[in-house]
Amino acid sequence: MLMSKGTTQASVEIPTSSMADIAFLLLVFFIVTTSMNQDKGIGMTLPPPGDPMPIPRENIASVWINNQGQIALKAMGTDYQTVPSAQVLRQRIEERIVQNPNLVVSILSQDQADYRTFVDVLDALRLAGQPHDWSKISIAQPFGRERRAGP
């Protein structure tokens, strides 16, 4: 009688030691498949299709990128000035933003220019605008080629 009571007491316990093994097995699978590295990028909002909004000419500064990856800057009242590097461009743009917070910078790139140069210029403009909460960047269609026939 006493013996049988003892056996029932032993069988009441659910074996939980293997549950941890199962849980860890699944855990390892999900840890391995999870990729924690986030996608990073330069976010932009494009203007809606249709006619572009008119902007006063004195508020426009144009950044030109040619096929060789050289950068030039043109603003109201000045002629094209070649800019040696993206860092210099950043300083020049920052000066102009301080003078005129409504400045709109238009990036005009030639067809054969590197995408890398374009991103460098975009990055420089964003760096220039960051301290002044400025982000009026416009991307223009590439110049120096036949315009594709629209629909």
């Binding site: 990128i65 030639q110 067809d111 054969q112 995408y115 890398r116 374009f118 269609q141 590439p142 080629r145």
Partner: peptide
């Protein structure tokens, strides 16, 4: 290295 025209 992609040419900008394609991205545009």
């Amino acid at each position: 290295r992609t040419r900008y025209g394609r991205v545009s």
